[in-house]
Design a protein around this nucleic acid. Structure first.
Lengths: 225, 225
DNA sequence: GGGTACGTTCAGCAGAGGTTCAGCTTCCAG
DNA sequence: CTGGAAGCTGAACCTCTGCTGAACGTACCC
């Protein structure tokens, strides 16, 4: 799957590229609207992620120009926080979906997957560790036969950990992978969610899937060494 | 794995290169920003470690210039101690992670591994000496089938020794390789950790993997001469 | 407009694990 | 054989990390 990201803020761009590549996508980047338009026209991408505020021509124009030129690649627009208008305008100019900044990584991935699926791709695959099963598409979790109710954030944290089962993930990494890019709060929040997850997925079942590695982070226990 | 280190302080550069090569990376060095940019552009590196204070063009510029040129090699920036601003600016210019000086060697290695992993590389490879096996990603240790619980520091010391199995490492070297670069405590701490490791990895198994070389340091015994 | 669900912050606590220290043992030179 | 240096060891000390319950604020829902 080849994606094009059009985004001038390097910080955001880097984060998105890294994350999406880790999810298995191939991502190329344009830093302004003109490059973006040109690359989207020439290259054959499965999806374009398009910031609105851009040097050169802005996101709306890029989107409209592409559609005028007969290019119907799915487009996901990144709109600014305050602009309520943005959404409507984004869809008017031919975008397929939009996402309001700031957004967290799982949300972006979900949207990208959603668009690709609607465009004819396949459903996200359930993930399993031992008898713990997550379905990212439905955002539901089971331990054996028993379904477990998680909040949205709890699910994101758990999915992040389960997808990297066995690896030690630091609070830093978890924070960066699950929260908004500009989140600047207390890392203790990770501890709080770990606590809540343990209370829901481990304690009622007398398990200890979610282990602390003091000084390094957390790890989902797997059977394999 | 081929890394590029851009660092003008030769003493620091040498120390880092030695260490990373012992970890199994192939490291090349540039001593100023211009060389660094040129090498990063021409050579194909898996990761660039970039100091900020550089003659020629500084780290930020090198980073920004690389990104502008469409080069998305993961970049780890080394920022000065006091600069809180540095972090933000490093990420703004497109760095993937940063590390504040002074840092300890295991931390540097962990960050490098983390970046390579996020960039889609393989998981860190387990290390083995005889029937002693360490998995750096999981931070777990086994002797044969039996898992051994180590603290964070114990693990760092053991990993440092095992990766240099067969070599004699002085207390000075171990101190420099595992503790923060500016650690200024009693070198006896190394003896204390050697003692703890022996008690955990050798004594219960009637082995003597961790040998003292009086007057010189310690060595992990290997089968090969 | 009141209530609920959820995310986030806070502060107190407990204990793990790091560092230091003082006394002991071993090794080697003379 | 003897003294000193290097290394070993157990225990004390103490910091800092992670755990936890509760409070707070906000968005959404009835």
């Amino acid at each position: 799957m080849k994606l094009l990201l059009v985004e001038d803020d390097r910080k955001v761009a880097t984060a998105i590229v890294r994350g999406l590549e880790a999810e298995g996508f191939h991502v190329e980047v344009a830093f302004d609207g003109d490059d973006g338009f040109w690359m989207a026209s020439e290259g054959s991408y499965d999806l374009v992620i398009l910031d609105i505020m851009l040097p050169g021509r802005n996101g709306y124009r890029v989107c409209a120009d592409l559609r005028d030129a007969g290019n119907w690649t799915p487009i996901l627009m990144l709109t600014a926080k305050d602009g309520d208008l943005d959404e409507a305008e984004a869809l008017d100019t031919g975008a397929d979906d939009f996402l309001t900044k700031p957004f967290s990584f799982p949300v972006l991935v979900a949207r990208v997957r959603g668009l690709l699926r609607r465009a004819g791709g396949r459903n996200p695959v359930p993930v399993e560790v031992g008898d713990l099963r997550l379905d990212p598409g439905q955002r539901r979790v089971w331990r054996g036969e028993q379904e477990i109710a998680l909040t949205s954030r709890e699910f994101d944290v758990l999915e992040f950990l389960v997808r990297r089962a066995g690896q030690v993930l630091s609070k830093r990494e978890i924070l960066a992978g699950v929260w908004e890019f500009d989140f600047d709060g207390d890392p203790n929040i990770v501890e709080v969610y770990v606590r809540r997850l343990r209370r829901k997925i481990d304690e009622p079942f007398d398990q200890h899937t979610l282990a602390t590695v003091r000084g390094s982070g957390y790890r989902i226990a797997t059977d394999e060494p």
